[in-house]
Design a protein around this nucleic acid. Structure first.
Lengths: 241, 241
DNA sequence: AACTAATTGTCTTTTTTTTAGACAATAAAA
DNA sequence: TTTTATTGTCTAAAAAAAAGACAATTAGTT
């Protein structure tokens, strides 16, 4: 298990990731809790090395949790009012993980982890089927939860999630990013259901099909025979350039 | 002149403000340069006190420069890759301003101001006629420059400005914030010219008038007689709530 | 093999929104 | 009184979005 050396990281600054996935017609979020203590839920997060860019730090956080690289990542907001103080449970666990921790430096470490943090919020879009959550890393347990079934989380993480979802909605069709949540091939209906999950509202089937095909970013493949007693839909693939 | 005590501030974190104003049919930005040295241009910025929220810090930066409070402020992005290192001129000036500076702590101070900074970008909208730029504060000289006449600035400040303008454009009519750039009363034509300056494109007069009036956020006041040989336009005021 | 149920793919029609065109109503100068 | 320049509004045209309609399939049922 990796440890944190506080000296290498920028103090007072953290990163929180809203990792979105899509499965069973539901938008999911990967959340974590520590294996010890009461186990309060949190968004997967991390700190920024003094020698790395923040986007790089966010990628690292993501790779540590999901094993995936080259994931769609978007920074959406900075959080952190003056009341955002690390709470006792989190503090105890952080301390235990600090290799720099030493009785001699107790004061410094305490100051570091107790002080107010400013957090940069990122959201990531992943193909949920490719992810194998690395449980155990950093003593945390990861779980995919439906956007409609998010528990109370630590700090202002529920608020961060709300902002992240809002950012996703604003970017979804404007930036053509939705395909990052889907497998390589999919039917029109599946994209529509994804859109309905993200926006939490229905779309008219006929018009949605036209709109999505008029974007000219989909390549039609073979038909998908499901065994259902109806016309088999075509499979499509997203064309990158 | 105020001084900085580095101990009170969060290290590695700064705030940069894109302060927008509107005058002579042009969108303006308030930029600054130090009175000493070569005088490289920069966006007005500052640091975050360990005891204050970032929005509060941004307000403070704004008040220090413009004297204004309760200004429309919006955070739009975080900047800061690993290459963003304080350059020598800026460093020299910062050192001179640090009251905490002392030969004994030379190393600490140098580390503080030399290290990489992560910067939170804010944009502000102000009625340019209310602003009296506080030249001399923090040894800087302030100047309103047209968006089409922005000089090369320090660090990645030109890039930050570009992102700030993009954020302004995205929010302008969606959020009804444009009125923050105008005086209390104005004609329809004046709002239209503001929109044209922000989006850098013309709008059809007849349709713009309809669109803006259909928002039902303007109160019609008396006519404005300019002395021009044509029908006098009405003055309007923005209704809050 | 014919019939039925459950979609899908694609049109056409309707409605709404956006854009363009037209013109009377000023205000002040000639 | 006539002319010039621009404003406030209306109507017409064009484009986009939403709703409606229906043939084409797939596989189960009779």
């Amino acid at each position: 298990m990796e440890k944190i050396d506080i000296g290498k990281f920028i103090a007072h600054l953290s990163i929180d990731c809203v990792i979105f996935g899509y499965k069973d017609k539901e938008l999911k979020v990967l959340i974590s809790k520590f294996k010890f203590g009461k186990g309060t839920w949190m968004l997967p997060g991390g700190h920024v090395l003094k020698t790395e860019g923040i986007d790089k730090a966010a990628s690292r956080v993501l790779k540590d949790r999901t094993g995936l690289e080259n994931i769609y990542l978007e920074q959406f907001r900075v959080f952190g009012d003056e009341n955002r103080i690390v709470n006792s449970e989190h503090k105890a666990i952080m301390k235990a993980d600090l290799i720099a921790y030493d009785e001699r430096f107790d004061e410094e470490v305490t100051e570091w982890i107790t002080s107010r943090f400013i957090s940069v919020g990122y959201y990531a879009l992943v193909d949920i089927h490719k992810v194998n959550p690395k449980n155990g890393f950093f003593d945390e347990y990861l779980e995919w939860r439906s956007i409609n079934d998010i528990p109370q989380m630590n700090y202002d993480h529920n608020e961060i999630l709300t902002y992240g979802l809002e950012a996703l909605r604003q970017n979804l069709d404007r930036k053509l990013i939705g395909f990052n949540l889907l497998p390589e091939t999919f039917t029109i209906k599946e994209i529509q259901e994804l859109y309905e999950a993200v926006y939490d509202r229905p779309f008219a089937r006929n018009n949605f099909q036209k709109k999505i095909l008029d974007l000219n970013v989909l390549e039609r493949l073979e038909k998908k025979f499901t065994g259902a007693q109806n016309k088999a839909p075509y499979l499509y693939r997203f064309i990158r350039n």
